[in-house]
């Protein structure tokens, strides 16, 4: 594990998983459940950008902006059109929400396949400067952007959740929907903000990660699982915890196939999931509450 280029790759992967996990985290803090459609949101961001650039010769920036807008729309639609009515009817049971989210995941995949086609499209790089060489490591502009944007979005989220009024409202609503509603807090608006922000972060992650391996309409499911695993491994105790979980998974995703062959990371992911879900389902970083 001395190859620095691999470490860079792992960090980049970790930043991607971390951003997906951040999207999970935002919705989990605000709405108290895991939105499995995060992966498809990211896929939508990446695939829509590539498709607009390739099919309509649109510039990368307008294409990315359109894709982000579409994804945010989908995220808002998920909350307004599916999750909210289903949760209202089922009265907080976990299974109906889970099935609803699975249906959303599947529907977005099929929608993307129908509109953008099923083949894998190459990702579009937002940055166009030359690769930077640091010592023995060559840093691609897309990697630099991925890492930079990930750190920035974590920093902004941390500041937002800790210091702004909306951020505090988000935590209050997430801690107890009913108590927040009794206090007259705008529960529905705050939940919607959480979904929109998560959609934004996920779309950004998808666009930035797409240049690494391309993107197709079925990428979303694996990304959903990686992001979920990252947020479970990291825990929900701190805003930065998902980034830590993402980094751990990034190491697994890069180094296991390097040492044990092509499919090893799939087994590794399953192993980590079983390990953490069985022994530390609350994650590594837990918010300690004084009794």
């Amino acid at each position: 594990m001395t190859d620095l280029q691999l470490w860079l790759s792992a960090v980049e992967m970790g930043c991607f998983f971390g951003m997906l996990a951040l999207a999970y985290y935002l919705i989990h803090v605000g709405a108290g459940f895991f939105n499995f459609a995060i992966g498809p949101y990211a896929m939508m961001g990446g695939l829509c950008t590539s498709w607009l650039v390739i099919t309509y010769d649109l510039g990368v920036w307008p294409a990315a902006a359109t894709a982000v807008a579409v994804t945010i729309g989908l995220a808002a639609l998920t909350e307004l059109g599916v999750v909210r009515p289903v949760q209202k009817r089922s009265g907080g049971g976990e299974l109906p929400a889970l099935v609803a989210v699975a249906a959303v995941l599947f529907a977005i995949q099929q929608l993307a396949g129908y509109v953008f086609g099923y083949p894998t499209l190459p990702g579009q790089s937002l940055a166009t400067f030359d690769p930077v060489t640091v010592g023995e490591v060559t840093v691609q502009p897309s990697s630099l952007l991925m890492i930079g944007v990930a750190l920035l979005s974590f920093a902004l989220s941390a500041v937002w959740i800790r210091s702004t009024r909306t951020g505090r409202l988000l935590r209050a609503v997430g801690d107890s929907n009913r108590a927040a509603a009794l206090l007259g807090l705008p529960v529905n608006r705050i939940r919607l903000i959480a979904f929109v922000l998560a959609g934004f972060v996920a779309a950004l992650a998808g666009i930035l990660f797409a240049p690494k391996a391309g993107v197709n309409s079925l990428s979303g499911l694996a990304w959903s699982l990686s992001g979920f695993l990252a947020v479970v491994v990291g825990g929900t105790g701190s805003v930065w915890a998902p980034l830590f979980g993402g980094m751990l998974l990034g190491l697994v995703e890069v180094f296991l196939p390097y040492y044990f062959g092509g499919q090893a990371h799939v087994y590794g992911m399953l192993f980590i999931a079983l390990l953490f879900f069985a022994f530390k389902p609350q994650g590594l970083f837990v918010r300690t509450v004084r009794a």
């Binding site: 895991f34 499995f36 976990e94 499911l221 699982l225 479970v232 992911m269 999931a273 879900f277 389902p281």
Partner: peptide, 12 residues
């Protein structure tokens, strides 16, 4: 495990 955690592990 139940709910989301069970779904994720079994998918993996």
């Amino acid at each position: 495990l139940s709910g989301f955690f069970l779904a994720a592990v079994t998918l993996l």
